[in-house]
Amino acid sequence: MDQFVVVIGQLVGFLIMLLVGYGCVRLKLYGTVALNGMCALLLNVLIPVLVFANAVDGATRGDLAANWGVMLLTAIMYALLAAAFFAFSRLLRLHGSRRRVFQATMVFGNAGFLGIPLIMSLFPDRGAIWVALMSIIDQSILWTYGVWLCEPVAGTDESRRSVARPSAGRRIAGLLRRFVNPAFIGIMIALALILAGVHVPGMLLRPLHTIGGMATPMSLIYLGGLFATTRWWGVLRRHELYVGLVGKMVLFPLALYALLSWSARFGALPASHDMIVMISLIAGLPTMTTIAMFCGRRGNMPDYATGFVLVSTLFSLVSLAVVSAVVL
Score class of each variant (00 low, 15 high):
S97V: 01
Y78D: 02
R171F: 00
F108C: 07
L176F: 15
T60M: 11
R98K: 11
L114H: 01
L142P: 01
V107Y: 00
G69M: 06
V180C: 13
Y145G: 06
G127K: 08
L91W: 08
S159I: 03
I172F: 12
T156I: 01
F85P: 11
N110V: 14
S167G: 15
A82K: 11
A128P: 07
L81I: 10
D63A: 13
A164V: 12
M106F: 03
A82D: 13
G146Y: 04
G96I: 01
A154I: 01
W68N: 06
A132F: 06
G62Q: 10
A173H: 02
F52Q: 13
G109K: 11
R177Q: 07
I76Y: 00
L133R: 05
S167Y: 12
G174A: 04
L81T: 08
I141N: 07
R100C: 02
Y145F: 12
V101E: 04
L94M: 02
V70H: 09
G146K: 03
V107K: 00
R126T: 13
Q103N: 13
D63Q: 12
V131D: 06
N67E: 15
I172H: 02
I76N: 00
F102M: 11
F88E: 14
T156W: 00
T74W: 00
R100M: 03
W130D: 05
G174W: 03
F85W: 14
R61S: 14
S121T: 11
V163P: 07
G58A: 09
A168P: 06
L175H: 06
P117R: 14
T144K: 05
L64Q: 13
A66I: 12
S167D: 15
A128N: 05
F86W: 05
A59R: 14
M106V: 02
L149K: 13
C150M: 12
L175E: 08
L122R: 15
R165G: 02
Q139H: 05
D57N: 05
V101K: 04
L133I: 07
H95E: 12
A82Q: 12
F88I: 11
I141M: 11
G62P: 03
L92C: 10
L80Q: 02
L80K: 09
L142H: 12
S167K: 10
S159Y: 09
V153C: 10
T105D: 12
E158I: 14
S159A: 15
A59D: 13
